[in-house]
């Protein structure tokens, strides 16, 4: 058993880069993403007995990150806290390199999606999960997942391909 638990910590350790990428798609800032991953890993370590070794540890961890994020955003709404000044984005857009601007455009387009659509987009398009896996992580039927994914994609495309919309978003 000790070996199993030891192995568990090690396996979670190898997933950290993946978890950070996923968390970045959900949160506004890389520091927030790392805070979220830390919270999720803490939870995972105390609940390691709930993970079935015949299932995907990656997807189990992604679900923990997702649940931790939902808990966190609800708590934030309750506290009504604004963590980051909205105008920071304008500075990045005005002074950044092309890569910064591309990052910011995508970041800000993602931010404008409803949470459920952002999760669907992140799990399928960024993390490369199948529809079935993404639906499991989100705890919804596949049909719900695909419709959220479709709406999220169309909204992102509208924001990212229309330069006037992008510009408006950048000055927001």
């Amino acid at each position: 058993m000790n070996d199993r638990v030891a192995n568990f910590g090690e396996q979670v350790g190898t997933l950290l880069p993946r978890l950070r990428r996923f968390a970045r798609a959900l949160t506004r800032h890389p520091q927030d993403a790392d805070d979220l991953v830390q919270l999720a890993v803490e939870r995972a370590l105390t609940r390691s007995a709930q993970w079935r070794p015949d299932s995907s540890l990656t997807n189990w961890m992604l679900a923990i990150v997702r649940n931790a994020w939902i808990d966190e955003t609800r708590a934030r709404h309750r506290r009504d806290a604004v963590l980051v000044p909205e105008n920071e984005a304008v500075e990045v857009g005005d002074t950044g390199t092309d890569r910064d601007i591309e990052w910011w455009s995508i970041r800000s387009a993602l931010e404008r999606l409803p949470e459920e659509q952002r999760l669907a987009v992140a799990l399928v398009l960024i993390e490369g999960l199948s529809y079935r896996e993404a639906a499991q992580v989100m705890e919804v039927p596949i049909g719900t997942l695909t419709s959220r994914l479709a709406r999220g994609r169309l909204a992102l495309q509208a924001m990212l391909t229309d330069p006037s919309i992008t510009r408006v978003a950048r000055k927001d």
Binding site: V5, A6, E10, V12, L16, L45
Partner: peptide, 16 residues
């Protein structure tokens, strides 16, 4: 990966 994250999983391993 920041050390505060890798340490979490490494510590779990070692202490367990």
């Amino acid at each position: 990966v920041p050390a505060r994250l890798t340490e979490l999983t490494a510590r779990a391993r070692v202490v367990e």
